[in-house]
């Protein structure tokens, strides 16, 4: 150890603060290693001092912690959202269900006589087109009818 110069790791070890006795013994007798290590330590010390000098007059801003209300705001928002969801669920389920069709009461049904019911059925059967299409029948275009009109004229 005392005859060989420091390796790169030994220089780093010494500069990093690990200073075993064998390295110290070598530095006492080796001018080259001693000068090298001292120079490197000076460079690092200059870096340290330069950074500290440059930031010595840093302004320390006033720290204002967030208010308690603001700190708990996310929790209150979450609680409100959960409450709104719980309240809204029954309405949502009610809207999803089909509404019951009003059933005529037995009293009303009894008032419709058999004769009237038979008459309604006959009227339905007598139609040319289904009831819902009847308004369209008057609007429909018939080429045959147009042709016969032209021949008659």
């Amino acid at each position: 150890m005392t005859t060989q110069h420091f390796t790169g790791d030994q220089v780093s070890q010494w500069v990093a603060g690990e200073k075993p006795a064998e390295l110290a013994a070598h530095l006492e007798v080796c001018g080259a290693c001693s000068a090298h290590v001292t120079r490197f330590e000076t460079v690092l010390a200059g870096f340290h001092d330069g950074i500290h000098d440059a930031t010595a007059s840093v302004r320390i801003p006033a720290f204002e912690p967030p208010s308690a209300a603001w700190q708990f705001a996310p929790r209150w928002a979450l609680a409100g959202a959960v409450a709104a969801f719980v309240v809204a669920v029954p309405f949502y389920r009610g809207a999803d269900q089909p509404r019951p069709v009003p059933v005529p009461s037995p009293v009303v049904v009894a008032e419709v006589s058999d004769a009237q019911l038979l008459e309604q059925i006959n009227a339905q059967l007598a139609r040319h087109v289904p009831g819902p299409l009847e308004p369209l029948e008057s609007l429909s275009y018939s080429p045959l009818e147009e042709l016969t009109k032209g021949q008659n004229q």
Partner: peptide, 9 residues
């Protein structure tokens, strides 16, 4: 630039 802000530049 860093040293320009320092007290001992």
């Amino acid at each position: 630039e860093l040293l320009a802000d320092g007290r001992s530049s």
